[in-house]
Simulated assay, not measured.
Amino acid sequence: MSLTALIIDDEPLARQELQYLLERVGGVEVLAQGTNGIEAVELIRTHKPDVVFLDVQMPGLDGFAVLKKLLDRKVPMPQVVFATAFNQYAVRAFEVNAIDYLLKPFDRKRVMQTIEKAQARVVGPGEPASPSLETGAKLDALLKLVEEQSHAQAPKPNTGKVVVRAQSRLLLVDQKEICFASIEGGTISVVTSTVEGHSNCRTLEELMDQLDPEAFWRAHRSFVVNIQHIREVVPWFKSSYQLRMDDPKKTEIPVSRAQTKRLRELFNL
């Protein structure tokens, strides 16, 4: 059974990778791709796909907010597969009864399993539709989740200090001293000119909530940098850049293609 699909992700490479894997797996016709939540709502309304591969974290509207918009506008809900680089979003995906989630980088076998799930749930000719009670339960779960997320994202008091765990100690570090923070394997590392440790935050988004948005910049999905601690902008392959920081190791941090425009604006490149 062939499925129609949309791919919504703000990262071009992620969209290309998923498109390629879907073509390899077969049985899926990708009708269009979108780069943000606003485009997602309009594409879903226009194309009415069987399934949407929806990035959780996007500028403007995140994946959960996209579904909230669809509900508000009474747009028929497609099957949803959340794509994310962070494991904790898997739990939220199933709280809203998404059919599945895919962790980045994508795995061909995992994509194939997801497509099989989606195909099994598509209503064929002459088959009964899903019970309306099930649909109502999904919508209630989603609305509850969006409400909880909105409360969680309410502005928090900014003390100017960040807790860093280093050598079995909890240090209160002035955020001005932070050179950069990075995430790998679900652990956030924080680097200053004198200290390297770990944050208790679960995601870089959570850490960013504690930091001055005028001073800190999400240069890459895995890195947050303090603009004042950038020592050098290094031209890299295919019009990309790296940032050489002023920490003792002179760490080089990649700038994602999506953030290249922001880099040029910051330093008039």
Rank of each mutant, 00 (worst) to 15 (best):
S2A: 10
S2I: 00
S2N: 12
L3M: 09
A5S: 13
E11C: 09
E11M: 13
L13R: 00
R15E: 04
Q16S: 14
Q19A: 14
Y20D: 03
V28E: 01
N36G: 04
E39P: 11
V41S: 06
T46A: 08
H47T: 03
P49S: 01
D50Y: 09
V52A: 00
F53K: 05
L54V: 09
V56K: 01
L61H: 09
L61R: 07
G63Y: 11
G63T: 11
V66M: 10
K69Q: 13
K69A: 06
P78G: 00
T84E: 02
T84Y: 00
T84L: 01
A85H: 07
A85T: 05
F86A: 02
N87A: 13
Q88M: 11
A90C: 03
A90G: 10
A93T: 02
F94M: 05
V96F: 10
N97W: 11
D100A: 05
Y101L: 06
Y101S: 06
Y101P: 00
L102T: 00
L103M: 04
P105W: 13
F106M: 05
D107H: 09
R108S: 14
V111G: 00
M112L: 12
T114Q: 04
T114S: 08
A120F: 02
V122D: 01
V123Q: 06
G126V: 00
A129P: 02
S132Y: 10
K138I: 01
A141F: 06
L143E: 15
E148L: 13
Q149A: 10
S150E: 14
P157D: 08
N158L: 15
T159K: 10
T159C: 04
T159N: 05
V162R: 15
V162M: 11
V163A: 13
V164E: 03
R165K: 11
A166N: 08
Q167G: 04
S168P: 04
L171Y: 08
L171R: 12
D174S: 12
E177R: 10
I178A: 02
F180T: 07
S182I: 14
V190W: 11
S193V: 11
T194N: 12
E196S: 14
C201E: 12
M208Q: 12
M208F: 15
M208Y: 10
D212P: 01
A215M: 04
A215R: 14
F216L: 09
R218A: 09
R218F: 09
A219Y: 02
H220I: 14
N226H: 07
N226I: 08
I227M: 05
Q228L: 07
V233A: 06
F237R: 07
F237G: 04
K238W: 05
K238A: 15
S239W: 00
S239N: 15
Q242L: 11
Q242D: 11
Q242E: 06
Q242Y: 06
M245R: 00
P248D: 11
I253K: 04
I253Y: 02
P254A: 12
V255H: 01
A258T: 15
A258W: 08
K261I: 13
L263D: 12
L263I: 10
R264F: 04
E265A: 12
L266M: 12
F267V: 10
N268R: 07
L269E: 09
